[in-house]
Design a protein around this nucleic acid. Sequence first.
DNA 1: CAAGCTTGGGCAACTTTCAG
DNA 2: CTGAAAGTTGCCCAAGCTTG
Length: 300
Amino acid sequence: MPKLAVAEKNLNLDIVLFNEQTFRFKRVYKDKQMYYYGVARHRVWKIWRVNEDEIEYEVLHSFIKSNEDTDKDVFNDFFSLQEDFDPWIDEWKKDSYFKKLYENNPAMFGIRILTQDVFENLFLGLLFLKTPTQRIYAVIEKFCKVFGTRFKYQNMNFYSFPTVEHLTKLKNLKKTLTDNQFELGRNDFAELFIQVKKAGGSKFLDSLKDKDVLEARKELMQFWLVGRKSADFILLKSLKNYEVVPSCLKIKVLISDKYKLKLDTEKFVSKDVKFIYEFLNEKFDEYSGWIQNIFLTLDK
DNA sequence: CAAGCTTGGGCAACTTTCAG
DNA sequence: CTGAAAGTTGCCCAAGCTTG
């Protein structure tokens, strides 16, 4: 079983897998060891921390063609382990709020941004629009159960997240979605899936990785129901653009509070998007979005 | 009578439209 | 092209209603 030298302070599984980035993992406590089981990037994972410095994992099943090397690359990519923050911390500590936070949470860079599939995050981003977070676990589970492939392991069932190609091939897609209450008010997911397929499907979504932020954002916003917020969510989480800040009232309140700015914390208007981005960007540059994610996670 | 269920107003979070 | 207002949607919460 692959073992990796990843220190606890650089990857805190317990936070990262449960801070509303992914809704597809569960904890199993057995023989004094916490195991994390879940589905990500078309693979069924069992992950556990061996000790403070090492992590071990097992790919129980892959829904697509894979081998040990690819799995390892995907593991590193999923947890965004390519990013190392040590060189930046001293610079960032010049910011008083960051400094205070860092001194109280020396392991805060164990809170990483997960790199999930673009399509899965697109779906998730739209779920956030209408679903209370407590219910998202159930909705995603049901969605995968209805449209995905099952893998049985011991007494557990895992379901793949369907691809856009698979979904749009279904004859009764619209009806199945409605029957299972996967709805977005008057609009529906079927329309979105078809649009994505028409734009080039999975290949198109993957190709966004190579485009610059402005272009990728524009491409994403062409889809129905995808506005600036959802697009930025994907840019940050799936496309590794860590300077992008998907902002909302929550972060405005946090900034206003922690930096004593006396902003109007009742309303969130379009120019706030720009303000928040510039405010964080000046301090944290190409990692503004990453830091924002940490701020929000630690603020709970 | 209490506990659970239903309903509706108010509000937040988005997208879309529109004016300058 | 920019930014603000309008439009859309569903959450939240509590009052009222139902049921055992």
